[in-house]
Amino acid sequence: MNPVNYLYLAALLFAIGASGVLIRRNAIVVFMCVELMLNACNLALVTFSRMHGNLDGQIVAFFTMVVAAAEVVVGLAIIVSLFRSRHSASVDDASLMKL
């Protein structure tokens, strides 16, 4: 098996995650799908690292994880406060700017 298959898998996971972001209305699930996309990227990065034979790709994946952790913290805080004020976690409900 060619390790390139890992990249195909990453692309597939990324596309699935993206469609989840676009389709789901529950903010938490949307957020999980974002995480899925990030993980797909990480898989691609790790594969690249293996491909090039150096560790830089892994470093970038590591940073991605750190940033994702920070993002999750803030994002979940936003969801919680949104839920607190609107009693709903639907992204469609946070549409005060619509006509």
Binding site: V46, S49, Q58, M65, A68, A69, V72
Partner: peptide, 25 residues
């Protein structure tokens, strides 16, 4: 893929911490 550190971190941080945070919320 030979990323031993990341593999462990993935389990500890992502599955262990971040996903638990999700479940919490």
């Amino acid at each position: 893929n030979g990323a031993y550190f990341l593999g462990i971190v993935q389990i500890v941080v992502y599955t262990g911490a971040i996903m638990m945070l999700f479940l919490f919320v």
